[in-house]
Amino acid sequence: MSVLLALALVAADPATSEPAAPPPESAAQEEPGAVDWAKEFGVAKKVPDPVTGELPVDPYTQAPANSGATPFAGARMAEAFGGQAGIRRIVGRFVDLNIADPRIADIFKNHDMIRLRRTLFEQFCYLLDAGCTYSGRDMKSSHKGLGVTRGNMNALVENLQRAMRESKVPFAAQNRLLAKLAPMDKDVVER
């Protein structure tokens, strides 16, 4: 009985259903009243960039090759994705879906979603030859220690497919981008 009640309460909880608008993000993503563990353990607290809101990351060597694949050539793929505006919309929706997906939402908690939105946009825009370069980290170091499973990867792929479908990217073009991303699983899936 109490089990049913608990489940019913969860079912009625708006946080577990798909949010129309994602909760506002602060880079630090701290809940009010939460223990400041950084302070407790004497770790230097990361300060968000006053302009972008991004948190600093450990130094790394920037190179487009960090994107993990070679870009397409020609305008066809960029067009299929609606240019930079389309790519930005797709990446935004993709991140929203991931952080609201009960299968993988926890993995994204306490990570810098402002930075992720920027670097993912750059990665897709670079790979689709839509006029960007990629300035983020390589796939291995950016996913190190996240404990991503094959199932998590599949969930993320489904969310990306959905974001692309909603933006009317033709299915064959969706798969051509996925063909660039699929071999990166060896750097992302850890367990």
Partner: peptide, 12 residues
């Protein structure tokens, strides 16, 4: 309360 419900459901 919601958290309690979630925790309850998790335990269940």
């Amino acid at each position: 309360r919601r958290r309690l419900a979630v925790a309850g459901a998790a335990v269940a």
